[in-house]
Design a protein around this nucleic acid. Structure first.
Lengths: 228, 228
DNA sequence: CGATTGCCGACTGTCGACAGTTTTTCTTCT
DNA sequence: AGAAGAAAAACTGTCGACAGTCGGCAATCG
């Protein structure tokens, strides 16, 4: 019996490293750790009731995702994003999203459009139901993830997922909701409209506007959070 | 002051993790490990005269760079690139390079142009001197790295550097030089010409052609290497 | 003779410990 | 009292060890 090439991840017993990584990620984006704060391996391992080895590996993982930074012989610190880096992040995001939507409009697929459409509906429902911002952000990222998935370029998708972690960090810096109820959810219809139009120029305009709004929202939010 | 001739046989002084990472990277791109080959932590640690802990951390680092893949409870394996992934990698590279050159032509800087120009001269010299392919590839990547550096977007630069490791892996898959002496080095003049012209459309055309040539070179090279 | 099951070696995941370094605290001198 | 310096505490980098797990091999069963 040959192994199925798919190799689905059954109910794989989660190793400690992944669990710690998830725990830390949640703790960081829930602002239970202040940006710049030092993470003590020993105390963290002690709190979780495990040894330092898995903690160190998880920290390395988060470092590669941009959530932590390490200084030799000093340990790990929660990444503190400078205002300038916010622009960099969204500029890279723009490059990736432009590429993705350009691909999608060139290889138009009605099935893809349907999937994206369903996701926007879901986002609007969630916005109406008054879910917390975290859930709405996740659904928002999910929409864009679907776009990258639809390009069929796994490496491009990975680049976006790497960036996603930092996007969540940006959101975490802002803190509580400012405004933007379901208008953000609804704004994704514009992207779909541009896609359906089949016009590359419209798509580029739409995505530039979309990401620009998101960037301004985050940058202003962080600015206000710093003044506070 | 420590003893000059220490008992440690191999590496010392710097971070063991970084040293192991460099060692492994070199070993992989020099094809001392076959793609798909399993890396034994114990034997590797034994060969280097160190314990498994730094080896594991280095392996995790290379995994985040796409040089290794890990399977739970099975260990680390040298990444075996599928033909399809080659296309994905160069497609992502195209997205990044388009964005970079678009930025450079929009914010034209004579100092940047001078630096890039010097680098191309250096590449041509090295090509004439008949250096090995590894050195030429590095200088090639260095040119593009300079481009990304010049954008001032650190995150974009990091995305390119992440991709660079995989690009080196692609080159490693090909093996020995096929052709392409200094023509590759010289082809970068076209990019500079487009930049100097100040025309965004010319730049895009130039970078599309440039990356397209590189992609075809790698894809065909890998194809031939597989037939062999 | 082919398929199944139990055993064996090898390896990873995790742990506790030690040494060197960094940070903090406490002392001492001006 | 404040600053410089020394001792102490805390922490990271690294190590060796142990237990659970995986793949392969052989004995067993149909």
């Amino acid at each position: 019996m040959s192994e199925p090439s798919d190799t689905k991840p059954f109910i794989q017993q989660r190793n400690l490293v992944d669990q710690v990584a998830d725990y830390l990620t949640q703790a960081i984006i829930q602002r239970r750790y202040v940006p710049g704060e030092r993470l003590s391996e020993v105390s963290l391992a002690g709190d979780l009731g495990i040894s330092r080895a898995p903690v160190r590996e998880a920290a390395r993982l988060l470092e590669s995702r941009g959530l932590l930074v390490s200084r030799p012989r000093r340990g790990f610190f929660v990444r503190a994003l400078e205002a300038r880096e916010l622009g960099d992040i969204f500029d890279l995001r723009l490059a990736l999203e432009r590429h993705a939507i350009e691909h999608l409009v060139k290889h138009y697929d009605t099935e893809v459009e349907k999937r994206l459409s369903r996701q926007v509906e879901r986002m609007c429902e969630i916005a109406d139901s008054g879910a917390d911002e975290g859930a709405r952000i996740e659904e928002d990222l999910r929409f864009h993830r679907l776009m990258f998935e639809a390009t069929g370029n796994h490496r491009l998708l990975r680049a976006f997922e790497d960036l996603s972690h930092e996007l969540r960090l940006c959101i975490a810096l802002i803190g509580k909701t400012h405004e933007a109820p379901d208008s953000i959810a609804g704004s994704h219809w514009w992207l779909l409209e541009a896609l359906k139009s089949g016009d590359a120029r419209s798509c580029r305009k739409a995505i530039d506007y979309h990401i620009g709004v998101a960037r301004d929202y985050v940058i202003q939010g962080v600015h206000e959070a710093q003044v506070r």
